[in-house]
C-alpha cells in the first residue's frame, strides 16, 4: 500500500446520507440533492485513507531484508490500539508531522484523558505496553521457530531398488511448494508432486532416489545470486534420513 498523503476527514455522514440520518436541519437537506447530482455524473471519488507504515522489526531495528517486519497498517488514529505504538509514533512524526501534532500533542492527550477516568487511562497505558511486548515476543518466537525448523529429505524404499524422495518442512522457510516441485520435476525429469501428509502439513514427493542432489540444489540456490524457488534454507537445517520398507510386509 503506497503512502497516501492529504487525508481528508470523511464527510459528515449527514451530507452524503441525507435519507439515512435523522438530521432535520434545513441546510443539510439543502445540500443533499447537490451532492447526489454531482455523483450522477461521475460517481463519488473514494476517500483517501492514510495507513500507518510504522513497523516492528525483529531483530530489533537492524534493518536488513530478512528481518521479520510487522507493519502496523492501521489508520494512524487507531495506532494507539495497535501493537507497535512507539514505532508508529516515530513514523508519523517523520512522515506527517502535522498529523502527529494532531494525534499526540499535549492538547490531544489532555482531551483524550479527559474522556477517561485516570484509572482507566493507566490501565490502557499498561495494556498498550503489554501488547507491544507481546507482539515482540511473537516476532521473536517466529524467528526462533524458523531457526529450529528442519527440512527433512527422506529416501523411501518403494520396491527393492526403487525409491521415492520426500521433502517436508519447507513451509517454515516461506518456500512455494508448487514452484519447488515443478523445479524438481524439471531438473530430474521425473514426477514431483505436492501431497498432504497425515499430520496436516504438505510435502513434496519426487520419484527416484535424488536425496543427495536435492541437498546440493538447496546449497546452490543459496550460493548463487539468481532468484530460485529454493532459496532461503540454511544448509544446517537440512536433514537426510532413510526409510526402509519393513521386511516381510508383502
Amino acid at each position: 500500500m503506497g503512502k497516501k498523503k492529504n487525508v481528508q476527514p470523511p464527510p459528515p455522514s449527514t451530507s452524503t446520507l441525507p435519507e439515512l440520518t435523522a438530521d432535520g436541519e434545513g441546510n443539510v437537506v439543502g445540500e443533499g440533492p447537490v451532492v447526489v447530482e454531482e455523483a450522477k455524473k461521475e460517481g463519488v471519488k473514494p476517500l483517501e485513507v492514510l495507513y500507518c507504515q510504522g513497523e516492528l522489526r525483529y531483530p530489533i531495528d537492524v534493518g536488513c531484508d530478512d528481518d521479520l517486519v510487522i507493519v502496523c497498517s492501521f489508520p494512524p488514529e487507531f495506532c494507539e490500539f495497535g501493537s507497535s505504538l512507539t514505532r508508529c509514533k516515530a513514523w508519523l512524526h517523520e512522515e506527517h508531522p502535522d498529523l502527529f501534532d494532531k494525534y499526540y500533542s499535549e492538547d490531544a492527550l489532555v482531551e483524550k484523558t479527559a474522556l477517561l477516568s485516570t484509572e482507566a487511562a493507566t490501565k490502557l497505558e499498561k495494556d498498550t505496553a503489554k501488547k507491544e511486548a507481546k507482539a515482540e515476543a511473537k516476532a521473536r518466537a517466529e524467528e526462533e521457530r524458523k531457526k529450529e525448523a528442519k527440512v527433512i529429505v527422506k529416501r523411501i524404499e518403494r520396491n527393492k531398488r526403487k525409491y521415492v524422495t520426500s521433502i517436508s518442512g519447507l513451509e517454515a522457510f516461506g518456500i512455494d511448494l508448487k514452484k519447488a516441485a515443478k523445479l524438481f520435476a524439471q531438473k530430474f525429469a521425473t514426477g514431483a508432486s505436492v501431497t498432504k501428509t497425515v499430520t496436516g502439513g504438505e510435502e513434496i514427493v519426487v520419484q527416484g532416489d535424488v536425496s543427495d542432489e536435492i541437498v546440493d540444489m538447496f546449497e546452490e540456490a543459496n550460493e548463487s545470486s539468481k532468484e530460485s524457488a529454493l532459496k532461503g534454507v540454511p544448509e544446517d537445517n537440512i536433514e537426510v534420513v532413510e526409510e526402509k520398507k519393513k521386511k516381510g510386509g508383502d
Binding site: S13, L20, T21, V44, L47, E48, V49
Partner: peptide, 8 residues
C-alpha cells in the same frame, strides 16, 4: 474509502 455505504 466510502464511509457512507452502510448506516452508521
Amino acid at each position: 474509502k466510502y464511509p457512507s455505504l452502510l448506516p452508521k
